[in-house]
Design a protein around this nucleic acid. Structure first.
Lengths: 195, 195
DNA sequence: TTGACATGTTATCAGTCGATTACTACTCTT
DNA sequence: AAGAGTAGTAATCGACTGATAACATGTCAA
């Protein structure tokens, strides 16, 4: 077995990544406080104790997940900025953001991160991450403060729609709203099968 | 003592309201899973057991808080729609929303509600609440789907900025972003003293 | 005044969770 | 083949939490 089922004894670096991936999904679905290290361990196919010991604490794991998520967004945006195909940069950024939906956990973990600003340990990470993205779309993409703010607002709406599973709703108003939120391009939402 | 400190033995209806008010604050700060019924009880000045018994369960209390919050938003929007002072309706709606910031708990509790779409009991409440607001600004205020979507997006950005305490940050970029998010009217954010 | 109902508390329980410890087993080098 | 370092688990613990039950106290009608 090569790529299948990733059996016994991964090197530590790979195991870390697989835990981070599992944690991203679970934190995204349940939030920081709502998720348990045991759920993450089960999703990663290892024991609860190993999850905690690998990252020291649940909090440290969440912070790492959040930092990775911000990093993924930043990388995607920089690629979109670089790949100038003639379309306006905000269109390219929007498409890059919609591509990130494929990994639901990223966007949803960030949504939870941003709602924990009052937490003494997690709050600063959230503020730093949010401002990082703001500065990126303003300074590197060259959007005006107003454009950058609008762009972030649309992104937050997408996150919310995704978190609420409105894209799976049969309500025609939900469909209309989701369609607006993603600028008419529903393909990324449709690609999401299981909830 | 008449209005002060509201001592011993409130009628049940008033006690319910005071618990709901306290719960709105605590849920807003910590989220559904992160808040404890004991924190809510302390904030309301009563025992933990009484909080639970009054609403049956923590979940039922949260749902009630969320429904009230949606109701408050709907009422504020309907007032704004009705009070036509010549300005465009979306301006009036925006101002009405900013007025709601005065009660941080409302907006932050909703932010947490909207992030719990995967929860079997809470998810449906969130979807229903979100769509209720969408339909209101579309049908009663007469906004187009696109305008309504933009309006909700700006609202979600305001919620996020509020949750992250970016309005208390000394970072100039944070100030710039908050200013954009509230359309240049920082007065409601400034009015928020304690965090 | 009395007693019945409404308001509210103390005590406690059973379950859950993150964390720690001690242990096992695999793998690779020499 | 030995043995040292790495990967991983089982067992368990103390703290916390939501919920329940039994009890106490205030209030009001008759």
């Amino acid at each position: 077995m090569s790529t299948m089922e990733t059996r016994h004894r991964l090197p530590a670096a790979e195991r870390r990544e697989s835990i981070l991936a599992a944690a991203s999904v679970v934190f995204g679905e349940r939030g920081y406080a709502g998720a348990t290290t045991d759920q993450i361990a089960t999703a990663a196919g290892i024991s609860q104790a190993y999850v905690v010991r690998t990252f020291g604490s649940k909090e440290a794991l969440f912070v790492e997940v959040a930092r990775r998520a911000v990093g993924r967004i930043a990388a995607a945006f920089r690629s979109a900025i670089e790949a100038d195909d003639g379309r306006p940069v905000d269109r390219r950024l929007g498409e890059a953001y919609l591509d990130l939906i494929a990994d639901r956990g990223i966007l949803l973990s960030l949504l939870h991160l941003f709602s924990l600003g009052s937490d003494p340990a997690i709050g600063p990470v959230g503020r730093e991450g949010f401002l990082t993205v703001y500065r990126l779309v303003r300074d590197e993409a060259g959007l005006s403060p107003e454009e950058a703010s609008h762009f972030l607002a649309e992104g937050m709406l997408i996150n919310t729609v995704l978190a609420l599973h409105l894209h799976e709703s049969e309500d025609p108003d939900a469909l209309e709203l989701v369609t607006q939120a993603c600028g008419g391009d529903l393909s990324r939402f449709r690609a999401l099968a299981a909830g």
